[in-house]
Design a protein around this nucleic acid. Structure first.
Length: 338
DNA sequence: AATACAATCAACCGCATCTCC
DNA sequence: TGGAGATGCGGTTGATTGTAT
């Protein structure tokens, strides 16, 4: 017999929400906040499970939701972020104010995925389709092997294609091993230009650029991580709490310390640009682990490696059309895991 | 107008992780 | 320290809506 959900077990209502149910949930949260979700349905007079209430609130009722169609800028940003983060929908959605992970995921699956395929790009690997199949079949454990074989056709959001005349084919073994960085190289100022991911350095310069940034990371001031009034391990929340960000931006109680989340999607404890002290990375090893930087840099290093191939899949390279491309990723926002 | 097919999106499910006792 | 419950996430499903024939 198939395992049944909590709603089944408790014989609770399932399926679409009625306007009356929405009203009840809205009114309850407006008055009391959601607090413990499992107690919300009872307190709000709903025959739903807490999980269902939470989902309804996050995906539909939250007052800060944007709704409507995605703009070209949002679409470009989603593609960029997906190339770096993969299917980390909550993290991607955190960079898009007013959008939910579910919304972004649906948009990706129903629209962007198809669009990329039509342009000959594998939506999973963000590499040209034919090429990604060959590299995938190689099944190598060394990601640099895969990226070093990427073809150089770039397809941009306006449909333009760019086929560079030269292709770097430096043997992989000639490249010194990249040590996966532990903390953002994104230190220099508040915003990281996306040109970093899309510039076309020659041969090994991309590697050296990454290495240089890696060295910067070693000198990165992470003391700022504790600006929220506590040791980093406490102040820096887990990545798995990312979606809490957006709910905190809403009406939930106890969100005072994060009110600027709603305004600018920035966290006070991540106000890195205003602190120039230098501490060792090891000092915050625990916090780093919590932040799952590896998840981020796994993708980022893909992109850095791709730069060695003169590859710019989506944006700024389209003849420098700045209007069409998302130029910056807010570094702080990339760290918005609350 | 009726039907079939495709696209969209809200909601569910199962699992992983976190928190509390 | 371990277990139970709560929470969050990503994948998937299914109902609804739109479009083509």
């Amino acid at each position: 017999m198939a395992k049944q959900s909590c709603c089944h077990k408790k014989k609770l209502r399932r399926g679409l929400w009625s306007p009356e149910e929405d009203d009840k949930l809205m009114n309850h949260i407006a008055k009391y906040g959601h607090g413990c979700w499992s107690s919300v349905p009872k307190l709000a007079g709903l025959e739903r499970c807490g999980k269902s209430c939470r989902l309804r609130w996050i995906n539909y009722l939250r007052p800060d939701l944007k709704r409507g169609t995605f703009s070209q800028e949002e679409e470009d940003l989603i593609i960029q972020l997906h190339s770096m983060l993969g299917n980390k929908w909550s993290q991607i959605a955190a960079q898009l104010p007013g959008r939910t992970d579910n919304e972004v995921k649906n948009f990706w699956n129903s629209y962007i995925k198809k669009k990329l395929r039509e342009r000959g790009i594998d939506p999973t690997t963000h590499k040209p389709l034919a090429d990604s199949t060959t590299t995938a079949s190689a099944g190598s454990g060394d990601r640099r092997v895969a990226t070093s074989t990427v073809a150089c056709r770039a397809v941009f959001s306006d449909g333009a294609e760019l086929i560079p005349t030269t292709t770097t084919t430096a043997p992989v073994q000639a490249v010194p091993p990249l040590v996966e960085p532990t903390m953002p190289q994104l230190v220099d100022g508040l915003k990281l230009p996306l040109e970093y991911w899309s510039t076309a350095p020659s041969s090994l310069s991309g590697y050296h650029q990454a290495l240089s940034l890696q060295q910067q990371a070693a000198a990165f001031d992470m003391d700022a991580l504790s600006h929220c009034g506590g040791p980093p391990a406490v102040a820096v929340p887990s990545a798995s709490r990312s979606s809490t960000l957006t709910s905190m931006a809403g009406l939930s109680p106890g969100a005072e310390q994060c009110t600027n989340v709603a305004a600018g999607a920035n966290l006070p404890w991540l106000d890195l640009a205003h602190n120039n002290g230098v501490v060792g990375v090891d000092h915050y090893a625990g916090a780093l682990d919590e932040l799952r930087w590896a998840d981020y840099f796994d993708g980022a290093f893909h992109a850095a490696a791709a730069t060695q191939q003169g590859q710019c899949m989506y944006d700024a390279g389209s003849g420098g059309n700045a209007d069409d491309a998302v130029q910056f990723v807010d570094v702080h926002s990339l760290s918005n895991w609350c």
